[in-house]
Amino acid sequence: MSNHEVVRLEDVWVQYNHVPVLESINLSIKQNDFIGVIGPNGGGKTTLLKVVLGLVSPRRGTVSVLGRSPAESRHYLGYVPQHGIFDREFPISVWEVVLMGRLSTSRLFRRYSRTDRQAAEDALRVVDMLQYKDRQIGKLSGGEQQRVFIARALVSHPKLLLLDEPTASVDPAMQAEFFELLEGLRSEMAIILVSHDISAVSVSVETIACLNRHLHYHGPAEITAEVLEATYKCPVQMIAHGAVPHRVLKEH
């Protein structure tokens, strides 16, 4: 059961206005995988997530999520979009934001059920934000908002969690805590995290893939300076996995 495949992308190509964004992407994610996708801005990271979510349909290739099309499997996916694209003044409370994760076609015209509210309460407890449930979302700090958006993704008990630049608004001191939270979720779901910030994926992420139109998929120990250079087109920080996680800055 642990080998159960959650996502499979085969030879996926995506174009926007005849400009290729993703080329020949092959990706396989199994249950309880934690994969970090890094790459420069404009490298197609968000597009890759949107392909998995079924928000962008590829020009070529096949995408299967839990053995079905992305649209059919959507309610098994938890999505934490890129931060900072919402209106801080929007009249909505933390509680209402989290309950959004329980919306679906079948609940049209109906009120949230007791199960929905219980799930929202549980999800807020997991991210340790239950005490802020009546706060307006814009009145929280960036890191706290991020926790709420993670709770919104968790509330539907997803089998796959997709995070788009999750650490962008989390200050460095809180990042360790943030990864601890993700680590705790791994036993229940697969996780894909995309980021342009290499340090964001260094320590807890099991597998790293580099994305710049092409996807280079690596096991834990395989990431090298050459691979990163090929992705970023310039010398970048190296990631090393050892007894003590550390990074070495490569010479320019």
Binding site: R74, H75, P81, L99, M100, G101, L103, T105, L108, S156
Partner: peptide, 19 residues
């Protein structure tokens, strides 16, 4: 609740399964 979600974050609404 559907209109609120639509106004706040349409993309998430779509992922959550809203028409």
């Amino acid at each position: 609740k559907e209109f609120q979600a639509l106004s706040f974050d349409e993309e998430f609404g779509k992922v959550a399964g809203l028409p």
